[in-house]
Simulated scan of single mutants.
Amino acid sequence: MTPNPVCSIDCVHAQAVETARQGMLPDQEVARLAELFKVLADPTRVRLLRALFPGELCVCDLAALLEMTPSAVSHQLRVLRTSRLVRFRKQGKVVFYSLDDDHVRGLIAEGLDHVRHG
């Protein structure tokens, strides 16, 4: 593996640094965004989100699709729900999950485009 290239002289481009500084996010937003990516770093959670693209599915549907126990699926859905990536509705004794909003679909779609691009 080749090492990362590094400047061989010490030079700071003040205008470029200032422009970048103006675009920096507040620490709280950085932390929330990092937490979101941490949640998305789990392959099972990505599969669950992608499974919900066509529409809502109940926990049992998701368990059958991913070949997991309903308990294991529920645990992952709780993490996704806490991060506001999915929402649920109850119909009698059945709990249906769906993507929280179109931002979630766009986030996964953009990530997939990036992965497929290179």
Rank of each mutant, 00 (worst) to 15 (best):
V59M: 02
Q15L: 09
V95R: 11
S83I: 02
D100R: 12
Y97G: 05
E110N: 12
L57T: 01
L65Y: 06
H117R: 15
A16Y: 02
L49G: 04
V94M: 06
H117L: 13
P70M: 01
V115M: 14
A63T: 03
L107H: 00
V115I: 15
V95H: 02
P3E: 13
R116C: 13
R87M: 06
V39R: 03
V79H: 07
V73S: 03
V115Y: 15
A51W: 04
F53P: 06
H13L: 11
E56Y: 09
P5L: 12
V46D: 00
P5T: 07
C7Y: 12
Y97N: 07
D100W: 10
V30C: 07
A14E: 09
D61T: 02
T69G: 08
P70W: 04
D42M: 09
P26D: 11
L80V: 04
H114C: 11
A16F: 04
A51N: 03
F88V: 00
C58M: 03
A64N: 10
G92K: 06
D27V: 10
V12H: 04
L99Q: 07
T2H: 15
R116I: 12
A34E: 14
L65R: 03
V46A: 00
L80I: 05
A109C: 08
P43A: 11
R21Q: 13
T69D: 03
R81W: 05
D101T: 06
L52G: 05
L65W: 04
L77A: 01
V59T: 13
R21E: 12
R47Q: 13
V95N: 09
P54C: 02
D10Q: 11
R105N: 06
K93L: 12
M1P: 11
L66D: 04
R47D: 08
V17S: 06
Q22W: 10
R78Y: 04
E56D: 15
V12N: 02
R47S: 10
G92E: 05
C11Q: 13
L48M: 07
L99K: 08
A14P: 00
S83M: 05
P70L: 00
F53Q: 06
R81H: 08
F53G: 02
R45F: 03
R84D: 07
R32A: 12
H13Q: 06
R32V: 11
L107F: 08
V73K: 03
S98Y: 09
F88A: 02
E18M: 10
V95F: 07
K38N: 13
P3K: 11
T82R: 13
A20D: 09
L57P: 02
Q22R: 14
G92Q: 05
H13G: 00
D113T: 11
E18V: 07
G55H: 05
Q91V: 01
S74V: 03
V39T: 13
C58E: 04
V39W: 01
V30Q: 10
V39N: 03
L57A: 00
H13T: 05
T69S: 15
R89S: 08
V17I: 09
C7L: 15
H13E: 02
E18L: 10
